[in-house]
C-alpha cells in the first residue's frame, strides 16, 4: 500500500464516534469530496489510550493495539485516525512490533487465541497528514468556498501527533508546520501565543484522576490564546477536544468562569471553509459556540 492509496480503514477509537461524531462526519465528508474512501473497521476497540493503558500495563496495551492493527491488515488497507491518542498508540505499537521480532512473537501468541495475527502490513496515518500530504494544499485551496480571512486561529497540536518525533516523523516538535499550512490555505491568520506547544492537560490519566489540576492547566492555555487575540482554537485530537470543549463546562463548575472559547477539530474548521454547514460538522451540538465570523 502506498501513500496515494485512495481507500483507508478509518480507525474511530472512542471519543470521535462516541462523544463528538461531528469529527467523524466531517472527516468522512471531506475525504469523500476528494475521492478518498473510508471503510469501517468492524470489531475495533479502544486504541487503547497510550498514556493511560501504556502507564498501567504495557503488556496489555500492546496486544490490544496490535489487534486493532490486525483488523486493518485483514482489510488490506492503511489506517487513518482522527485522534492523537489513537495515532500515538497505533503508530507506536506498529513501530515496536516491526522493530522487535520477539515482541511480535509474544504478541501474536495472544492474538492467536482468537485467530488473529499482526503481520506488519499496514501503516498508520492521521487525517491532517492525509489532508496535507496526500490530498495536498493546492487541491484544497481550489475548493475553499468560505475563506477564513478575518479569523485568528490558535493552533493547538496536542502531544502525540508530533512527539516522540523519532516515531512520528513530522520533523521538529518545536517548529511544527502541518496545521499552520492547512490553516493558511483557508485564509486564516495564525497568531503565535505563549502556550501554543503546551499539552491540553488531559493525558496520562490526569483528566480522570485529578480533574481540577488538569482544568487549571487548560485554563492557562486558553487564556494565553485569548490574550493573543485568537478567535478560536483548531486542533487534530479528539481527546483534546473532549478536554478543551467539554472541559469548559467543567471549568465553569470548578472555577465559576465560562470562557465559551470556540474549539474546532481540524476537519470541522476545514469543513466549514470547504462549504459544509455547522450542523453537518456537528458544531451546533457541543459546549462552545461558534461565532458568526467563522460560520458566515
Amino acid at each position: 500500500m502506498t501513500e496515494d492509496s485512495k481507500t483507508y480503514a478509518y480507525f474511530l477509537g472512542c471519543i470521535t464516534p462516541n462523544r463528538f461524531p461531528g469529527i467523524e462526519a466531517s472527516t468522512k465528508k471531506i475525504l469523500k469530496g476528494f475521492e478518498i474512501e473510508t471503510k469501517e473497521m468492524v470489531g475495533a476497540s479502544c486504541c487503547p489510550a497510550p498514556g493511560v493503558f501504556g502507564s498501567f500495563d504495557m503488556h496489555t496495551w500492546l496486544p490490544i493495539a496490535a489487534r486493532n492493527l490486525a483488523i486493518a491488515e485483514e482489510m488490506d488497507l492503511d489506517i487513518v485516525v482522527s485522534c492523537n491518542g489513537c495515532y500515538g498508540s497505533l503508530q507506536e505499537a506498529d513501530h515496536l512490533l516491526k522493530e522487535h521480532p520477539k515482541l511480535r512473537e509474544e504478541t501474536n501468541e495472544i492474538l492467536g487465541k482468537f485467530g488473529r495475527e499482526f503481520k506488519g502490513t499496514t501503516t498508520v496515518s492521521h487525517i491532517i497528514v492525509v489532508l496535507h500530504d496526500v490530498i495536498g494544499l493546492d487541491r484544497i485551496k481550489e475548493q475553499i468556498k468560505k475563506p477564513m480571512n478575518d479569523v485568528n486561529v490558535a493552533v493547538h497540536y496536542g502531544c502525540h501527533f508530533l512527539k516522540p518525533r523519532e516515531v512520528r516523523g513530522h520533523g521538529s516538535s518545536e517548529t511544527p508546520y502541518i496545521l499552520e499550512d492547512l490553516m493558511k490555505v483557508t485564509g486564516a491568520k495564525i497568531p503565535e501565543y505563549k502556550d501554543k506547544l503546551m499539552c491540553c492537560g488531559a493525558g496520562g490519566g490526569n483528566r480522570t484522576a485529578d480533574s481540577v489540576q488538569s482544568l487549571e492547566w487548560m485554563r492557562q492555555k486558553l487564556v494565553s490564546a485569548i490574550e493573543s487575540g485568537c478567535d478560536c482554537m483548531v486542533h487534530p485530537c479528539a481527546f483534546c477536544h473532549l478536554q478543551l470543549d467539554r472541559g469548559q463546562t467543567e471549568m465553569e463548575q470548578a472555577f465559576g468562569i465560562f470562557f465559551n472559547f470556540p474549539i474546532l477539530f481540524a476537519t470541522q474548521f476545514m469543513g466549514l471553509a470547504l462549504g459544509l454547514s455547522q450542523e453537518e460538522v456537528g458544531l451546533d451540538k457541543q459546549t462552545t459556540t461558534i461565532p458568526e465570523k467563522i460560520l458566515k
Binding site: P50, G51, H160, P164, S173, G204, N206, D210
Partner: peptide
C-alpha cells in the same frame, strides 16, 4: 508519579 500527562516535552 501520576501527574505526568506523557506529553513528551522532556523526552524531546
Amino acid at each position: 508519579l501520576w501527574f505526568c500527562t506523557t506529553c513528551y516535552t522532556c523526552y524531546e
